[in-house]
Design a protein around this nucleic acid. Structure first.
Length: 122
RNA sequence: GAAGCAGGCCGCCUUAUCGUUCCGACAUUUUUUCGGAGAGGAAAGUCCGGACACCACAGGGCAGUAUAGUGGGUAACGCCCACCGGUCGUGAGAUCAGGACCAGUGCAACAGAAAGGAUGUACAGGUUAAGCUGUAGUGAAAUCAGGUAAACUCUAUACGGUGCAAUGCCAUGUAUACCGGUAUUUAAGGAUCGCCCGUCCGUUGCCGGAGGGUAGGCAGCUAAAGAAUAGUGGCAACGCUAUUUUCAGAUAAAUGAUAAGGAGCCCGAUCAGUUAUCGGGUGACAGAAUCCGGCUUACAGGCCUGCUUUUUUU
């Protein structure tokens, strides 16, 4: 199974991000929140994914980076849960909504829950 | 050995699996495979100084800000070094906005009659008369006064502004900010300066030209006041010479995750104790964003060098 997370799969376009926050729907499983929206694209890739940790909640850059890296890591390991079902391109944005730091295991569990919730709705 | 002073350095390591950014090679245009490189001493705060870029090639005056012993270092500095002086410490050392109150204004505890428009008391002298003269007494200072400038102020020196979201180019694309000509207006406004002067452009209509803002891409963007080693000049900061070397360039932002093992430190147990063994815990401060030189602040734990005081032993 494909566990890579290259440039093509990252959410980079500012326009798309603005659209995502304006029109996107959300599913939650503490401490993660997933905002998603379908979009029109000529590219082959199905998913564009970004991660975000609000500065308001986590003050230092080191801790924010650490959480973002963990989020990318658990998404990379578990993204097969959605990519196998998806038919149209979607943009994803994961937002961390806790003030506390988190362990890898806990984050992975909550990532799986979020992805399953997404599957139920689509 | 104990207590202390000064300076410097390190700031986890190894292996496996999966993943990420850049570069190179083979192949090739779907991308795959292989190899190499990939955060800090403070990358931080953004407090000083530069490089670089643009704006009137930035001129004058006022205002404002900063600095303040002497000499040196440096691209430059408000930084660093040396020396002199003051203060503190037994000492190694530490520390100091360390120019000027014979320009003006202001301020001042206690004591004292009085600290400036002031001359009281006692004694002595003296005069027509008079704090007119001397002494005593308070105080750091009592009359051509003295102290205070992290008080205003004065003196000397320096400072144009804004910043890589600078700036240049490309494609896309909307509909009037821009440019040229002309008519009119002669002063409202604008040109990145706190104010004034000076300088430049000009409002509006018509005609002609093809561009601005926003988001995207490329350049700027990392070969530099570079790094390492050796020699050499200098008390030192630092300079000079030679050789070797290329060492992060991301952009919703790479440098990570997981597992195992090993040193470091802390706690507990066993042991009379040094030590050793076993078990558990802990790993700080913190993430490049145009690039350098400083300053300041944060920091688990560890190492090294020089020196001082004191005690014991020889």
């Amino acid at each position: 199974m494909n566990q890579t997370f290259g440039k093509d799969e990252k959410l980079k376009s500012k326009k798309l991000i603005d659209k995502l926050f304006a029109e996107g729907k959300g599913v939650k499983s503490f401490p993660l929140k997933l905002i998603y929206t379908p979009y029109e694209s000529e590219d082959e890739g199905l998913l564009k994914t970004g991660v975000s940790v609000p500065k308001k909640l986590v003050k230092t850059a080191v801790k924010r980076n650490r959480i973002k890296r963990l989020m990318r890591e658990v998404f990379r390991k578990n993204k097969y849960l959605v990519t196998n079902h998806l038919s149209s391109p979607h943009a994803f944005m994961f937002i961390y909504i806790s003030r506390e730091e988190i362990s890898y295991d806990k984050l992975e569990a909550s990532m799986i829950k979020v992805l399953e919730k997404f599957n139920d709705k689509n």
